[in-house]
């Protein structure tokens, strides 16, 4: 990548307000996202009923120049999460736990996560589905009661969490997909719920069309969004693209978390996606986790993206 391209990437990111050299608090209200630097009065205002953390794309096993030790950066971030006060209620891992679907990679991830003592809910990324259609991943990481395809839902402090799988049996030329069986399950899962109940969807590939040229989207995502339309507060947390990205459409806030392993280029600024090598000092600015808080009675969920280097 040329220096010029790199400069453009950074400038574009700054323009979009997504660059996070320090922790940034995101609040979304009435369709307008606002941000505030961590440590400000606004950021301190968050007396929350439920706080949880999104971790993503740990790619345990990755050891290429973009990050020769993805296990070390994952552990650094988990150490921080374990030290958080107040302690998060749980963690959501939005996929690509492993790099090559190897049992040793999953074991490493699991033991590091268990060391935090924080309950964690998982969904797979395509890197977790490389062997036997993901069966080894589901056997180890899907909760009891998950459907055969690995999707499930649960409730926590009045918030309904829907964990979806859009990385199974990807079709040539396509993007992520949910499939008819999962869409039917979502419809049934949401049936009868009050429209005022906050919904959090957790999924690996973006549910909306981020950049189809790189396959960054879900081909039948619009059908899922139609099912979510009647709810007043919907937050979609995904991984896969290894960079912060936020979009609000109606009552739905889309948020893409950082990877804990390596960054990827901003869409269109490189010939292809893939691990992006940055100067060693900058890597930790581009890896991180997101903290999400819900205040009962408030429509918005507040999201703080915390880079490792902050």
């Amino acid at each position: 990548m040329s220096d010029e391209t790199k400069g453009l990437t950074r400038r574009r990111a700054l323009e979009c307000g997504l660059w996070a050299g320090a922790g940034v608090l995101w609040t979304v209200s009435g369709g307008v996202p606002r941000s505030a630097l961590l440590g400000t009065a606004e950021a301190a205002e968050m007396g929350a009923d439920l706080t949880f953390v999104q971790i993503s794309d740990s790619h345990i096993g990755f050891n290429k120049p973009a990050n020769p030790d993805a296990t070390a950066t994952f552990k650094s971030l988990l150490d921080r999460i374990a030290a958080m006060n107040p302690r998060p209620a749980f963690m959501l891992h939005t996929g690509d736990v492993s790099h090559l679907s190897r049992a040793s990679e999953w074991d490493t991830a699991r033991s590091l996560i268990e060391a935090t003592g924080i309950e964690t809910h998982f969904i797979p990324g395509e890197h977790d589905m490389l062997v036997d259609n993901g069966e080894p991943f589901f056997a180890s990481f899907a909760p009891q009661g998950a459907k055969p395809g690995g999707w499930y839902s649960f409730d926590q402090k009045g918030v309904h969490f829907v964990a979806l799988v859009n990385v199974a049996q990807l079709k040539p030329g396509g993007e992520g997909s949910l499939g008819a069986a999962q869409l039917a399950w979502i419809e049934n899962d949401l049936k009868g719920r009050s429209a005022s109940q906050p919904i959090v969807v957790t999924i690996h590939m973006p549910l909306w069309q981020v950049y189809p040229q790189w396959g960054w989207g879900t081909e039948d995502g619009a059908q899922a969004l139609t099912l979510l339309k009647r709810f007043g507060s919907v937050t979609v947390l995904n991984g896969h693209i290894h960079q912060l990205l936020q979009k609000v459409e109606g009552n739905v806030a889309f948020h893409t978390g950082m990877s804990t392993a390596f960054p990827q280029p901003t869409p269109g600024t490189a010939p292809s996606p893939g691990p992006m090598k940055v100067e060693p000092g900058r890597l930790r600015e581009l890896l991180g986790v997101s903290t999400v808080s819900h205040v009962a009675g408030k429509k918005r969920l507040a999201i703080i993206d915390r880079p490792l280097g902050a």
Binding site: E126, L130, L170, K171, P172, G174, E175, Q213, W214, G215
Partner: peptide, 11 residues
Amino acid sequence: KYFCSLHPMMT
């Protein structure tokens, strides 16, 4: 014809 099952836009 063939593709990459991780990155299905690759054919």
